[in-house]
Design a protein around this nucleic acid. Structure first.
Length: 281
DNA sequence: TATGGCCTGTAC
DNA sequence: GTACAGGCCATA
């Protein structure tokens, strides 16, 4: 499920689109467009200037200060219709969009088509003329890679004043943008922090921050986690899932001490940790 | 601050 | 059949 490294991989995979003109944007499922203040037509004929990212959001920046903000949520994918290894359901649905199939939207550029494929329909497209206002309203923290100093201060502030379990705080995008369930569990394991400890009690926040950054960087290098159905724009899978130490390892021996990995539910999310390495106090 | 709902494919 | 996957939001 796309967290920051997976989204970054997608963004890099879409960089080749910069400079092209968008002929049309078709929305086949109005659900993905529900919160957009501008109409798809306002993009027609505009040049795509760059593909960027903030946290888990993909930013398609067009002329006239118009930005298409995309969130893949759980199962969203951006696929080039000409790519050879796109999933069969997508290939079979090309040309039949909007007939109950899972292609939710199509971007027609001057010489290629991008398909927004999203079986679970959680993903969103939002067209705005003021990017900053959008993120301000959503309370999304600064991006940890693009604005590291501000992002750390925001993280420090948010963690210090939250009494929620630290795991829950790490999933809060107003505290740190881009961390999801996988990297939250992995980061807490690396720092030997029990996921249920109150956020405000965590010391050495700089070390936790650095562990998260290092983790995200390593995953980006591997092209993302590719757990379940995540793929990049060409339909290729990342390899970082092979390096997970606790996520999805319930009942397996801890790579550090051999104790069995535990699973609890926190904030409604599966949480994996080593009780021996991450003591409860 | 905690919970349920949104969704549908996949694994048991 | 049923449980589960989880990012985010609305609601209490």
């Amino acid at each position: 499920m796309p967290e920051l490294p997976e989204v970054e991989t997608v963004v890099r995979g879409l960089a080749y689109l910069a400079g092209r003109k968008l002929r049309s944007l078709e929305i086949f499922d109005s659900r993905v467009w529900f919160e957009s203040p501008l109409k798809p037509k306002s993009l027609e004929g505009l040049q795509l200037l760059e593909v960027a990212r903030r946290g888990k959001y993909i930013l398609l920046r067009f002329q006239n200060n118009i930005t298409l903000i995309q969130h893949l949520r759980m199962t969203g994918k951006m696929l080039d219709s000409k790519s050879k290894n796109i999933p069969d359901p997508v290939r079979n649905a090309i040309g039949k969009e909007g007939k109950g199939l899972q292609i939710r939207s199509r971007f027609s550029f001057t010489d290629c088509d991008l398909l927004f494929y999203d079986p679970r329909r959680f993903g969103t497209l939002t067209l705005v003329s003021d990017e900053n206002r959008y993120f301000l309203e959503k309370k999304i923290a600064p991006d940890p890679f693009h604005r590291p100093e501000e992002a750390f201060l925001c993280f420090q502030d948010g963690v210090r004043k939250s009494k929620r379990p630290i795991k829950t705080a790490l999933l809060d995008q107003s505290i740190i943008a881009g961390v999801g369930n996988i990297y939250a569990d992995e980061a807490l394991f690396l720092r030997k922090i029990h996921p249920q400890i109150s956020a405000s009690r965590i010391r050495e926040l700089k070390k936790l921050w650095q562990a998260i950054i290092a983790l995200l960087e390593r995953s980006i290098t591997s092209g993302g986690s590719s757990i379940r159905n995540y793929v990049n724009a060409s339909g290729e899978a990342g390899t970082y899932a092979q390096k997970h130490l606790v996520y999805g390892k319930t009942g397996e021996p801890c790579s550090r001490c051999g104790a069995l990995i535990s699973r609890i539910v926190l904030g409604g999310r599966a949480t994996h940790f080593c009780l021996s390495c991450q003591p409860d106090s």
